[in-house]
């Protein structure tokens, strides 16, 4: 009986200490479109995200209408004509860190991470596999990733008159400083 009890106590301890969740409300997400006629850049710092370092599960959500552009008109067109943010308010990523064993939360440093999961933009979900890095600094972690998004994969239509203004492949950058949750 005593052994069972100790085992149970250990188990409960185990679940508690491995429940290593990190969160952010201020994830920075930027994207860059390079096209012959103009370069377009937008950023937001309103992304939310959670990573469970016990399982490697992660989820990020970015409200589309919080992206700030250099020109107000670009921002309006982005929301109204391309992303249709009234219908599809968020971009989301749900996935898993596949090389979790290589990330040591106990030791400060930068660790490469590979992530697999589903990206949802403009209401369309695609399976993606991206690389990034996780930097451990004391109690906090910082997640960065740069990846490419093919606009056509998410059925975002660019009219023929705008093909020289908007890139077919957009570079996205994520920087998220996360704290224990």
């Amino acid at each position: 009986m005593k052994k069972t009890l100790i085992l149970l106590a250990l188990l409960s301890l185990g679940t508690a200490s491995f429940a290593q969740k990190f969160m952010t409300r201020t994830a920075n997400v930027g994207f860059f479109s390079e096209a012959p006629l103009e370069n377009i850049e937008a950023r937001t710092s309103s992304g939310t995200g959670i990573i469970d370092m016990a399982t490697g599960d992660m989820a990020f959500r970015v409200p589309i209408n919080t992206f700030q552009f250099e020109k107000a008109l670009m921002q309006e067109h982005f929301n109204e004509n391309y992303m249709e943010s009234d219908r599809f308010p968020n971009a989301e990523f749900k996935g898993k860190i596949t090389n979790l064993a290589q990330v040591n939360l106990g030791r400060d440093g930068s660790y490469p991470a590979t992530v697999e999961g589903q990206m949802t933009i403009h209401g369309i979900t695609q399976n993606v596999k991206e690389v990034g890095s996780i930097r451990v600094a004391g109690e906090r972690i910082s997640v960065t990733s740069e990846f490419l998004v093919r606009v056509a994969d998410y059925q975002i239509q660019i009219p023929s008159v705008m093909v020289d203004n908007i890139a077919k492949v957009v570079k996205v950058k994520l920087v998220a400083d996360m704290q224990p949750f």
């Binding site: 106590a9 409960s12 679940t15 508690a16 939310t48």
Partner: peptide, 26 residues
């Protein structure tokens, strides 16, 4: 002895990351 363990484990299991995102969204 079991109860605290159950209590600790239960909420963590029940909430998906999605729900947690809803929770932390300001």
């Amino acid at each position: 002895c079991l109860l605290p363990a159950l209590l600790l484990a239960a909420p963590a299991r029940a909430q998906s990351l999605d729900e947690l995102l809803d929770q932390i969204e300001e």
